[in-house]
Amino acid sequence: MSARLIASLLFCLFGLSTVLAQGFGGLGIGQDGYSKPIKGKAFDFPKDHGPHPDYRIEWWYVTSTLKGDDGNDYGIQWTLFRSAFAPPSDTSTVSTWNNGQLWMGHAALTSATSHFVAERRARGGVSQAGVRAQPFSAWIDDWEMTAVSDQTEGISQVKLAANGEGFSYDLRLDANGPLVLHGDKGYSVKSPDGQASYYFSQPFYRVSGALRIEGKSIQVTGEAWLDREWSSQPLSETQTGWDWVSLSFDSGEKLMGFQVRTKDGAPFTSATWISADGTPTAFGDGALKMTALKTDEVAGRRVPTGWRVELPQKDVDVEISALNPDSWMATSIPYWEGPVSIKGTKAGRGYLEMTGY
């Protein structure tokens, strides 16, 4: 093993350890030297489908609920994280093989009886991982989310692929609705102290393709939801994690909602109601209510896997239940994420993510 490779691996490990030691995933640490989200700044597409290296944290995050030709329900996750370990003005760590960026990929495939997880890491500057805005391509090793052709506009039509021990998937995603900006035209506040991110979604993907589970191929169709977010300090130092949902109702309407838990006091909440035509309505702190109904023993801890979600202004009073309560992401930064069913004033399917447990 070369000295350069050893140095790269040590930087990844010690850099990641530093991040983990400061707030959940480092999201509550300071943002000195990095760019900060500004309310009122307009998005610039397709440029904003690409990376923003002057911000400390960024992700491209896909979840999908699927029905197999075997009659079973499935869910998949595909995520690429970018994290900077030095502000753009600090060139002390920059070289031709290290540009101060760490890339990390997570992939999962979930059924009612199994949950497969894989993780990849890469240094910036060596083309092992990265994102290009146009034509769009995001990759880490052989995992990819990429436009179906050079003529594809933005992220409207993409291929999605990942693999790990015992599983793989190869899917096509076709958007049949617009991008949705969360919060105040994409400026999404996360705490009473004003921490914020830029945040938009493409929640209108139709999906087709194939899964492979322990050698068995399964044809699937369904829906997918892409979240795009970047910031430099999206949480405050007192916030410990979040509970997030993306819910797609049979009516064609959708709901994104989250609560960020604090060490003391009530959680901070935010929600976006998305009409069937893609028109968003933002709801600030206090409008959304999430109440844990059921907990399970998962990875040696108690995790709420059933919730009541209420947004009275839109007649939402639903219960969501995990397809597989054991959907634990045993990754460098562990968390729970998996598909859920919805019943109550509205019915449908969605995804639940919980961090900091």
Rank of each mutant, 00 (worst) to 15 (best):
Phe43Gly: 00
His52Pro: 10
Phe81Gln: 04
Thr65Tyr: 12
Ala21His: 01
Asp69Cys: 00
Arg56Gln: 13
Gly25Phe: 05
Thr79Trp: 07
Leu27Tyr: 13
Ser64Trp: 13
Pro88Ile: 13
Asp69Gly: 09
Phe43His: 07
Pro88His: 11
Ala84Arg: 15
Ser17Pro: 00
Ile38His: 03
Trp78Val: 03
Pro37Phe: 09
Gly23His: 03
Cys12Thr: 10
Leu16Lys: 02
Leu27Met: 12
Ala86Asp: 02
Pro87Leu: 04
Trp78His: 12
Gly50Asn: 05
Tyr55Leu: 04
Ser35His: 11
Ile76Trp: 04
Arg82Asn: 07
Arg56Lys: 15
Asp90Trp: 07
Ile29Asp: 04
Pro87Ser: 08
Thr63Cys: 10
Pro51Lys: 05
Trp60Tyr: 10
Ser89Phe: 03
Gly15Trp: 07
Phe85Asp: 08
Gly23Gln: 01
Asp48Gln: 01
Phe81Thr: 10
Pro87Gly: 11
Asn72Val: 02
Leu20Thr: 00
Gly26Trp: 01
Phe81Leu: 03
Leu80Arg: 06
Asp69Leu: 03
Asp44Trp: 04
Ser17Lys: 14
Gln31Ile: 01
Ile57Pro: 00
Gly25His: 05
Arg56Thr: 03
Lys47Asp: 12
Asp70Gln: 08
Thr63Val: 15
His49Lys: 02
Glu58His: 02
Cys12Arg: 08
Tyr34Lys: 10
Phe24Thr: 04
Gly28Ile: 00
Ile29Ala: 12
Asp54Lys: 13
Leu16Gln: 14
Ser89Asp: 14
Leu27Trp: 14
Asp32Asn: 05
Ile38Arg: 13
Ile38Asn: 01
Ser35Cys: 11
Gly50Val: 00
Leu66Thr: 03
Trp60Asn: 02
Phe81Lys: 05
Val62Phe: 13
Gly30Ile: 01
Trp78Glu: 06
Leu66Arg: 04
Tyr61Ala: 12
Lys39Gly: 10
Thr18Ile: 08
Ile38Thr: 14
Leu66Ser: 07
Tyr34Trp: 14
Phe14Thr: 15
Ile76Arg: 08
Gly50Pro: 05
Asp48Leu: 05
Arg82Phe: 07
Gly68Leu: 00
Gly40Cys: 06
Ser17Val: 05
Gly23Tyr: 05
Gln31Ala: 15
Ser35Pro: 01
Gly33Pro: 09
Tyr74His: 10
Lys36Tyr: 04
Ala86Glu: 04
Lys41Ala: 08
Trp59Gly: 07
Lys39Tyr: 01
Lys39Val: 10
Gly40Phe: 06
Gly28Leu: 06
Gly26Asp: 09
Cys12Asn: 02
Asp48Glu: 05
Gly75Pro: 14
Thr79Met: 12
Leu80Ser: 09
Thr63Pro: 03
Phe43Pro: 00
Ile29Val: 08
Gly15Ser: 09
Ala84Leu: 13
Gly75Glu: 11
Gly28Lys: 00
Pro51Val: 11
Asp73His: 13
Lys36Asp: 06
His49Asn: 15
Ser35Met: 10
Lys41Trp: 06
Lys67Ala: 10
Gln22Glu: 07
Thr79His: 04
Lys41Asp: 09
Ser89Lys: 09
Gly50His: 04
Leu20Asn: 06
Leu20Phe: 04
Ala42Pro: 02
Pro46His: 10
Gly23Ile: 00
Ser35Phe: 12
Gln22Thr: 02
Lys67Ile: 12
Gly28Glu: 02
Trp59Met: 12
Trp60Ala: 04
